[in-house]
Structure formats: C-alpha cells, structure tokens
C-alpha cells in the first residue's frame, strides 16, 4: 500500500482541513485513481462529503493498493493534519506520503522552505554591493523609458531585486499518525441521500452571512445565566430561498423576530448532462417545478441549528462559490 504526492495547492488543502476541523476532529480520507474524498461524520451536527479532483490539491500523485479499485482509506486527526499543513504555508515545495514507523502508519508531510534565510541578519556590506550592481542598470533604462512617455514598465518586472543569495534549504517533516481502514469497514458508510432540491441559489458573501447568522444565533440564545453552558440548547435559524434570486435568514424567539433578506442573487441553472434523464430530467426536477410558482409561493424553507450552521459557514475560508440546495438537509458544494 503506497501513497505519494506533491502538494500542489497548499493553501487550498490547509483551508479545507481548517474548515473540516470545525465540524469534527477526525477525517476519513479516501484516495483512489481519480479522486480524493474527505469525509467527516461527527456524532452530531453536519456531515461533510467533499470530493476533490486530484489535481486540485496534488500533483505527481500515485496510489498503489491491493484493494479492488486501487483505493486507500485513511483516518487521520484533523487537528494534527491542519497543524502540519499550516507549517507549509511559506513552503517552496511540499509533499505527502504514507509511511510506517514502529508499526504505526504515518502521513509524512515534507516541507521545503527557505524562510529561515530571511530571518538571518541583514547581509554584510559586501553582499549588498554585489547585489546592487546588476540592478543598477535596468533601473536607469526604465527611467529613461518613462521620460519618453513609454509606460511599458515590464523592464522593472524583468529584474526584480534578487533575493539575498541563499540556496540553503530547511526541511520540515511533519508526521501525522494515521490508521488505515480496511475497505469492508467503510463499505457500509454511504453518503446520505437527499430529496431533490427545490431551489439552487448562490449564497451571498459567506463572511457576511456567517456574521449575521452568528449574530442571530447569539440573540436567540437564552441569556447566559440561564444557559450555564448547556450544549443541548439550540437555536433554530430559518433559512429560505426562492428561485427569484432571493435569500432570507431569520430567527424567532419569544421576544423577537428578526430577518435579513438578500435580493438579486443568482439561481444557477441545472446542467442537463449532470442530471439523470438529461433535458427531460431537468424538466421533471423539483427545482423546475418550484420556478413555476409565483414569487410568494416559491419560497423553500429549512430550519438549521444555529451553531452548526455557523460552523458549516466556516467553509467560506476556501473562498469558493457556494451553491446551497434547499431541501430537508442543507448540502454544500464548493
């Protein structure tokens, strides 16, 4: 059983683990020839079933397994994986591979960085002079170009100030303990099936939505003296979306009723090639029927637990577009 890959997009990988970490401490990673899947199934709260194409985070990817379908199932601590990846933020190169040490499988993340070079004392006078000399010439030529009214400043770009010469690299190896799951143990875990969504809508900026959601959740929570840290207390936020580009979030308590509404959002169209039944399937789809309703009737409404919703919105750190599908369960895709 082997797994090896270079991490192509450290930023995305780190943010992904960071947002999953809010929901659960342990992630199930499924690696095969075509996809990487990250699944978190917390004891309570929202599940995440994330499917990534391999080249969105990895390159030079290789998986070898004896199991049918060449699949590796791993379980790792998200806390440690996230911490390990965060140390790669400034890396020049990072790779990940599955190894074994003292009988414990490990996901070893090897990070190459030259950042320590910048921490060192400023270069000696000699070094400075050497550095100045080559950059002197392009500066003067480009100034001449500006004088001539030529705004082509590319000559600046061609000669960026060379970083202080240092070919010394520091290698950081982060070893995250992992367990390899036998295929039969995960065979019975299936993604929950949802009813066909009534409405598809692109959510407003998630940071904004998250702040408002949390504000509402907090307002609706019983006063802290009564709560005394009881985790079972929950607040229901009411989310509604319509096929007319409108989205509402609200909360109702004995004392108050608050609602925020966005207009002019986008309702993405279904892609017939992705829908079972093609054009016919789209016509029969629940969301198509919803579109035929009037503006007042077309609202699809769900209730979500406020804290859990806030954690789910943490996925916004990935910066992607978010499609919410309104059905009995909210389900997200990046």
């Amino acid at each position: 059983m082997r797994f090896k890959a270079a991490i192509r997009n450290i930023h995305t990988f780190t943010k992904l683990t960071g947002s999953l970490l809010l929901l659960s401490k342990v992630v199930w990673i499924r690696l095969d020839n075509d996809q990487v899947r990250f699944t978190v199934i917390p004891e309570r709260g929202s599940q995440v079933w994330a499917v990534l194409s391999i080249d969105s985070i990895f390159e030079d990817y290789s998986v070898h397994s004896n199991t049918p379908g060449n699949t590796i199932h791993l379980q790792v601590s998200l806390t440690h994986l996230n911490r390990a990846l965060r140390s790669a933020i400034n890396a020049t190169f990072a790779s990940i591979r599955l190894t074994k040490k003292d009988g414990i499988p490990l996901l070893a993340i090897t990070i190459t960085t030259t950042t320590f070079a910048s921490l060192r004392r400023p270069p000696t006078l000699e070094g400075l002079n050497e550095r100045r000399l080559p950059s002197e010439a392009p500066n003067s030529t480009s100034r001449a170009e500006v004088d001539r009214g030529n705004d082509d400043s590319i000559s600046f770009q061609d000669h960026p100030p060379a970083p202080f010469p240092s070919d010394r690299e520091t290698t950081i190896t982060q070893s995250v303990a992992a367990t390899v799951l036998p295929p039969q143990s995960v065979a019975s875990i299936h993604e929950p099936t949802c009813r066909e969504p009534d409405v598809h809508i692109l959510l407003p900026p998630l940071l904004q939505l998250k702040a408002i959601s949390e504000r509402f959740t907090k307002l609706a929570l019983p006063t802290s003296s009564a709560a005394t840290g009881d985790e079972n207390l929950s607040t229901r936020l009411i989310l509604s979306a319509s096929p007319y580009g409108e989205f509402r979030i609200g909360v109702q308590t004995a004392a108050c009723k608050i609602e925020s509404k966005w207009q002019g959002l986008t309702n993405p169209e279904l892609d017939p090639t992705q829908i079972e039944g093609g054009e016919e399937g789209v016509r029969e789809h629940a969301s198509t029927r919803q579109k035929n309703l009037t503006r007042e009737e077309a609202w699809a409404t769900v209730r979500v637990e406020g804290r859990d919703w806030g954690r789910v919105l943490g996925v916004g750190r990935l910066g992607g577009r978010v499609v919410a599908c309104k059905s009995p369960d909210p389900f997200f895709e990046k």
């Binding site: 342990v26 379980q75 790792v76 601590s77 440690h80 911490r83 390990a84 140390s87 414990i104 490990l106 320590f116 070079a117 060192r120 010394r168 690299e169 520091t170 290698t171 950081i172 190896t173 982060q174 070893s175 995250v176 303990a177 992992a178 367990t179």
Partner: peptide
C-alpha cells in the same frame, strides 16, 4: 487502536549547518 490518532504530531526540522 483508535488512540493512535491522538498520537501527537512528530515534527522534524532539518537545516543546513551553514545556517
């Protein structure tokens, strides 16, 4: 067993002695 996942991160930082 399941405790393995709680095994703390092992981190190795290797740098050039010229540093």
């Amino acid at each position: 067993g399941r405790e393995i996942l709680k095994h703390p991160l092992e981190t190795s930082v290797a740098l050039d002695t010229l540093d």
